[in-house]
Amino acid sequence: MYATNYAKATSLEDAVAKLKSSEDGKFLGGGQTLLATMKQRLAAPTDIIDVTKIPELQGISVEGGKVVIGAATTHSQVAASKEIASAIPALAELAGTIGDPAVRNMGTMGGVLANNDPAADYPAAALALDATIMTTRGEHAAADYFTGIFETALEEDEIITKIAYTIPKKAAYEKFRNPASRYSLCSVFVALLDDGPRVTVTGSGNDGVFRVTEMEEALKANWSPDAVRSIAIDPATMLADIHGSAEYRAHLVPVLAARAVAKAG
């Protein structure tokens, strides 16, 4: 591991002050991505400021049709939460598919959303469930928050405190994993909200997570797997790498969307 300075922030103000006084600092969640990235020298912050013990980033609650989750909540806690399992079972299930059990014991929801890896799982749920990303500078609607691969609306010194997900009438997540990395090669989250269906895709888009409005329209008219099965995705909008071509990923979207609709019931 390469040299860096570590500090544990005791409050939001403390975290922001520590970041501002550092040369090239970064906030640290559970470290399951950042520490691995630093080992590879793909990131080399002079300082890492651990925000996971800050009180505002803790807790899970259900209030006013929303599930509100502290940013420091680990994937294991989300997967095991009875409140989340009863309000949005698809979200608890999604959390249980991230990485592996040991990674889930450290990795945090806030860390995933701040990093916005194009193959991360939570962005699909956040966009489909009209999530609000609450931060030290205010709030971001999920629709405006994910701005590109590894890019978000966050400022350098902005910390995610909580994430509020709309409780859907029904929802399901269908994940197609890269068998080696366990990340999504292509995964689809479908949800039926009060104002209509949502279909989001992660792991495959050129610009990261995205909605498939044509599928949403089709589901509005007919909520069934058949409604989405024949809707084609343009490969030009899809990522391509050694794990799968753009055409392959484009093919997976309607297949997984149909499975997700069937699973949601």
């Binding site: 591991m1 570590y6 544990k8 640290l28 470290g31 399951q32 520490l35 691995a36 651990d50 294991s76 059990p101 040991a102 990674v103 014991n105 450290m106």
Partner: peptide, 20 residues
């Protein structure tokens, strides 16, 4: 893999200071 406060974690991807 070791246990931290009863839970399995991968000790190659955790700083000692993180789990003080």
């Amino acid at each position: 893999t070791v246990h931290i406060d009863g839970h399995a974690v991968k000790s190659c991807t955790v700083l000692a200071a993180q789990v003080d």
